[in-house]
Nucleic acid binder design. Structure first.
Lengths: 138, 138
DNA sequence: TACTGTGTCAATAGGTTTAATAGACAATTC
DNA sequence: GAATTGTCTATTAAACCTATTGACACAGTA
């Protein structure tokens, strides 16, 4: 289940992608246009920032903008940054599997396959794809 | 993220599938062989039972067995029974979407696609498939 | 320089969920 | 009727989710 952290992060990134060329956009504007608590978004931003997804400007004319072109962001990378991990089970988080049953686990291959399927799907969608389907629809 | 409810349920169903022909298997045996708290499994069983996945026998020789052949169970159906829902976002739970942003939501198509991909993967694996890959491995 | 609007960071809190544990009760067999 | 099984309800400790609050740092502008 994807929490509001990931969903809000994605909506914010889409909003910023739509406003490319407007320079830095204040968080207040994003929060209002997306109808999300600004204070809560504040907590999500560091998660995106430390992955280098955003550019920041401080001061009265400050705000955020995308660090790359919309084509270069995948939904998967955004969600993984915000959620910390998209692993379907905890033993697939991190680089090593610490589960004591790991060697004889009958279900592990299922979770590994699920993770592959999910990652392939989410990494196959870019921010640009989302903008494209928006203009097609409306 | 799949919780222990779903993971334990799946492991229990695999255990029962391996013991087909042994008649009714006591929960105590399953809990011990899978190293899962028997009392916790007790709570998961009603979730599987109300979906008709198990046959029950009470009394001193009682226990559980599969209601169908292993080929007829999919991993998806077991997980959905135990977890309640495999929807990636809450607005896709249930039959109607009550989200007020539903009509203009840019991200909804992404979650719908994710759900489709996940369901197709999980419903493509049967308990018999899991037993098969076990014997192949050793 | 003082002011104002921005981002940054830490702490807190209410609610829900998770993962159990415990105990009373019901059914069945020997 | 004693023992062993399943069934049901309640309780709990910990974690997590979803914010909210407030103090602080920074950068333009008057």
């Amino acid at each position: 289940m994807i929490s509001t952290r990931g969903r809000y992060a994605l909506r914010m990134m889409i909003d910023l992608a739509e406003r490319q060329g407007e320079g830095f956009v204040a968080l207040k504007e994003i929060a209002e246009s997306q109808d999300i608590s600004k204070k809560y978004l504040e907590q999500i931003i560091p998660l995106l920032n430390r992955s280098g997804l955003l550019l920041t400007s401080r001061g009265v004319t400050g705000g955020y903008r995308l660090a790359k072109a919309p084509e270069e962001y995948t939904v998967g990378e955004i969600l993984r940054s915000a959620e910390g991990s998209m692993a379907p089970v905890s033993c697939l988080e991190g680089s090593t599997n610490d589960c004591p049953r790991c060697g004889k686990c009958d279900t592990l291959p299922i979770w590994e396959g699920l993770q592959t399927v999910v990652d392939q799907y989410l990494d196959g969608i870019s921010l640009a794809d989302i903008l494209r389907s928006k203009t097609e629809k409306g």
